[in-house]
Structures are given as structure tokens and as C-alpha cells.
């Protein structure tokens, strides 16, 4: 009996472990970040005033609103948010344009070849994100292969390369290239369920291929399109590596700004404010939408 109780408590403890871990290493940090957004910079280590203080056995709250004020007053910050959203939006759209045909080709391929094609999509995703960004950087140099190729075939004049690197174009290309699998996989999952007979029915009823595609394929793949776009847009908005390595020095992306506030300006409270706003504006709605979708799925299953 005692053994049983001991093993029961043991099982409970093990089960609670991931929950405790998440509370300490995931939730707690965000609470600290939230609190820190009400602090202000100082010289020293850590480079900010403590918000909660014990003094003469009294709990003191030291709330500064200066970072929040700066955030709302300086148009740079709001502008960065808008430009991040714009960049992510354009990049997501481009990814969809390239990803959809690819997903379609895979889904319509004979079953034996489907696995190979899927593997080809997933493989670069597993290798390394950093190296894929690096690969884009290597080919975009002024003397790099893309420019050389364009000069060789005569589209560009010799010795007048286009400046690709450190432009918005490079950022878009980087996002499209690295996030393509995130777009293709949910689209594929959706398109593969689309039965050939539905397409045949449409053409049998006299629709030209384009209309079959536009009126049958696209509407039936909305769930995949939405899932894919979300999976690209959300991480792209907060992207730091791509604008940092491929974009211009003045590229306004929120991830980069957070890094600059933290690393260059050592303004931890401002970095906190920006993080909190990203969570509220981009991450929270996404999570809520997912919850909502789960609920819908549950209702549909029942």
C-alpha cells in the first residue's frame, strides 16, 4: 500500500514536470518582460531600475511610464510595426504564389513520386535555416552568380551589376526561400484530399481548366491557404536574421529593432515594450484564432 501511494505521488510529480518547466521558463519570463517595460534605463548591471523593490521590509513599486510614452510619441516605433507587417504581407503573398503551384504539383503527382517530392521540400527545411539565408546571401553579391549570369546572357551590361544585397528585394527573397516549406505543407495536406473526380466532374460539366481551378480548386483549398499564410506571416513579422543579414542597415523590421534596443542601445525597457506590443498585436490574435479553429473542428467532428 505504501509502495502504491509512493508510486502514485511519483507519477503525479513526473506528470507535473513539464507544466512546472513551462511556468518557470516560458510564462515567468514574459511576466518579467511585462514588468520590465515599466522600468527605465540606468548605468550598471543590470542596466535598468528594478520595478519591484524590498526596502525596510516594505514592498515598493517603482513604475516608470517613460518607455511606453516614447513608444507612442516617437513615430519610428509605430512605423516599424507597419513596415514589418507590410514586408511580411508582401513576402507571404509571394510565398503563396510560388508555394501553391508546387503543392499542387506534388498533390497531383502519382503516389510513388509524391513522397520523393515531399522529401525534396522538407529536406532543405531540416538542414539549416541560417545556412539557407547564407546561401541567398552568397548568390546575391554584386559579383555573385546571379549578377554574373544576368551579365553573361546580356540582360545586364558587363560590369554594371544590380545591387540586390541589402535591399527590400533581398529580404522578400530570403523570407520566400526560407519559409516556402511552411506554405507548401499545409497546402499539400489540403490539396491531396481533393479528389480527382471533383475536377473531372467540373470539366465534364464543361468548365475550362482555368475555371475549374478558380472555382473549384481554390475555394476547396481555403483552409490550407489560410493555415499556410499564417505559418509564414507570423514568424516573418518577427524575423530578425533575414533583415539583419540581407536587408539594408535602415530596414525597419520589429525583430531587428528589438535587437538594436537590446544590443546597441542597452535599452532593456524599450525592448520589453516592443516585445509586449508584438505579443499583443501579432501573436495573441493568432493563438486566439487557432483556439477558435480547434473549437470549430471539434463541433464539426461531433
Amino acid at each position: 500500500m505504501i509502495n502504491r501511494i509512493a508510486s502514485f505521488v511519483g507519477v503525479r510529480g513526473v506528470i507535473a514536470l513539464p507544466m512546472i518547466w513551462l511556468l518557470v521558463f516560458f510564462l515567468l519570463p514574459f511576466i518579467f518582460v511585462f514588468v520590465l517595460s515599466f522600468s527605465t534605463i540606468r548605468n550598471g548591471m543590470p542596466p535598468y531600475e528594478p520595478v519591484v523593490n524590498f526596502k525596510d521590509s516594505f514592498l515598493q513599486l517603482n513604475i516608470h511610464l517613460s518607455s511606453w510614452e516614447r513608444f507612442f510619441e516617437n513615430p519610428i516605433y509605430i512605423g516599424t510595426f507597419l513596415s514589418s507587417a507590410k514586408t511580411a504581407f508582401i513576402a507571404t503573398f509571394l510565398t503563396l504564389l510560388i508555394g501553391f503551384p508546387m503543392a499542387y504539383v506534388i498533390a497531383r503527382a502519382p503516389e510513388a513520386r509524391r513522397h520523393l517530392l515531399l522529401m525534396l521540400v522538407i529536406l532543405p527545411f531540416w538542414t539549416s535555416f541560417l545556412l539557407r539565408v547564407y546561401a541567398i546571401k552568397t548568390i546575391l553579391y554584386n559579383q555573385g552568380p546571379v549578377n554574373q549570369f544576368l551579365m553573361k546572357i546580356g540582360i545586364l551590361e558587363v560590369n554594371s551589376p544590380i545591387q540586390f544585397l541589402n535591399t527590400d528585394f533581398a529580404v522578400y527573397l530570403g523570407i520566400v526561400y526560407t519559409y516556402l516549406p511552411f506554405m507548401i505543407l499545409p497546402l499539400y495536406a489540403n490539396l491531396v484530399k481533393l479528389e480527382e473526380s471533383v475536377l473531372e466532374a467540373s470539366s465534364d460539366l464543361g468548365a475550362k481548366p482555368f475555371w475549374t481551378f478558380w472555382q473549384v480548386v481554390i475555394p476547396l483549398s481555403y483552409p490550407g491557404i489560410i493555415a499556410g499564410c499564417m505559418l509564414v506571416f507570423i514568424p516573418a513579422v518577427g524575423e530578425f536574421v533575414i533583415p539583419d543579414l540581407l536587408g539594408a542597415t535602415d530596414t525597419k523590421m520589429i525583430g531587428k529593432t528589438i535587437y538594436v534596443e537590446y544590443f546597441n542601445n542597452r535599452d532593456y525597457p524599450m525592448a520589453s515594450v516592443l516585445s509586449v506590443v508584438v505579443l499583443i498585436v501579432f501573436v495573441a490574435p493568432f493563438l486566439m484564432m487557432r483556439k477558435w479553429q480547434d473549437k470549430l473542428a471539434e463541433v464539426n467532428d461531433a
Partner: peptide, 24 residues
């Protein structure tokens, strides 16, 4: 709560995860 905590890191920008860890 647990469900949310388990899936949130998937959509959390790494820069924020990193920064909040540092603060922790």
C-alpha cells in the same frame, strides 16, 4: 493554460524568446 503554453513557442519570434530568457 498548459495547452497555450505548449504551443505558443511555435509562433513566438525567437528574438522575444531569447530576450525574455535573458531577463529571466
Amino acid at each position: 493554460l498548459i495547452d497555450g503554453m505548449v504551443t505558443s513557442p511555435l509562433v513566438m519570434p525567437e528574438i522575444i524568446t531569447g530576450f525574455s530568457m535573458l531577463i529571466l
